[in-house]
């Protein structure tokens, strides 16, 4: 087992420098079919975001498969330090996406879990290679739409100003910070504004928001402030955890009136493109 794992096999700084100056991410060509991994938050709280993702994928000509046996990526247990529990749930997920299609996820942090943490989770177990192979197939849904599907959208909505919250996992795990911007760029009536301190965490962090609720609340309060200072009509996020956190705080914070409207990026885009109306596929 290679233990000093961060040391690249060939420690040639020159080649690394070259590699670093070009994007490291590789995308497949547009496949016929993809799996969608819905995530538990989308399942229970934001099904519209999931449906929007599905509709957008199919609009781009990709057939969506949704194995009904999927549940949760295991992140809640993983970040709480219950590795065995996380592993068993993760293993169940890995076994139900049998064909070699990409697996797209409408939430950055769940995607981050499956892409970057599954390998660590299974290190030293018989499933390590399986986890490595599985993680290669994970894409964030927005990112997949932008970089793999050549999606073209028509904006059917009114002029509006939107602030985008980019999540930590999309930034630092999935490296997909730009995809939301690129997708929204297709909507000609949408002006995008960037809030101050855009790279700072909203304070969600799963159990952290409950265990250290005062710290978490202070963080989300600032996030709401920066977002509402943009004077945008609404804010978007492609991460359900952040969305739940920021929207929840904005709704409670009387000073952040403009921000009452917050939704998942995918719901917003599908609605503007006229693919979803009142939460129903058209």
């Amino acid at each position: 087992m290679p233990v000093h794992h961060f040391i690249p096999e060939e420690p040639l700084v020159e080649s690394l420098t070259d590699a670093l100056s070009t994007p490291l991410k590789l995308y497949p060509t547009k496949p016929e079919k993809v799996y969608v991994f819905g995530t538990c938050l989308v399942d229970l709280f934001y099904p519209e975001a999931g449906m929007s993702g599905v509709v957008l994928l199919e609009h781009a000509g990709v057939e969506v498969l949704f194995p009904q046996d999927q549940t949760c990526c295991g992140q809640p247990a993983y970040t709480s330090g219950y590795k065995e529990e996380a592993r068993l749930v993760a293993l169940a997920q890995m076994s139900i996406f049998g064909e070699d299609y990409p697996i797209v996820v409408p939430s950055g942090s769940c995607g981050g879990m499956m892409k970057t943490h599954y390998p660590r989770l299974f290190e030293g177990t018989e499933h390590h290679q399986q986890a490595l192979d599985f993680s290669e197939r994970i894409y964030e849904l927005t990112d997949f739409l932008v970089h793999v599907c050549d999606l073209s959208l028509e904006d059917k909505g009114e002029r509006t100003k939107i602030a985008l919250h980019t999540s930590c996992s999309s930034r630092r795990e999935m490296k997909t910070t730009d995809s939301g911007k690129l997708l929204l760029g297709q909507l000609k009536n949408v002006a995008l504004v960037e809030p101050k301190k855009v790279t700072e965490c909203c304070g969600f962090g799963g159990a952290f928001s409950v265990r250290h609720s005062e710290i978490s609340s202070a963080m989300v309060k600032d996030k709401v402030m920066h977002l509402s200072n943009t004077k945008a009509d609404a804010f978007l996020s492609s991460d359900c955890g952040c969305l739940m956190n920021i929207k929840g705080a904005a709704e409670k914070d009387k000073s952040a009136l403009t921000l009452r409207r917050g939704e998942h990026l995918l719901s917003f885009v599908a609605r503007r493109a006229g693919l979803i109306a009142d939460g129903v596929e058209v």
Binding site: H4, P11, L12, V13, E14, T17
Partner: peptide, 8 residues
């Protein structure tokens, strides 16, 4: 491992 390269 070998000593790292100092090309940088």
């Amino acid at each position: 491992p070998d000593r790292p390269g100092f090309q940088v």
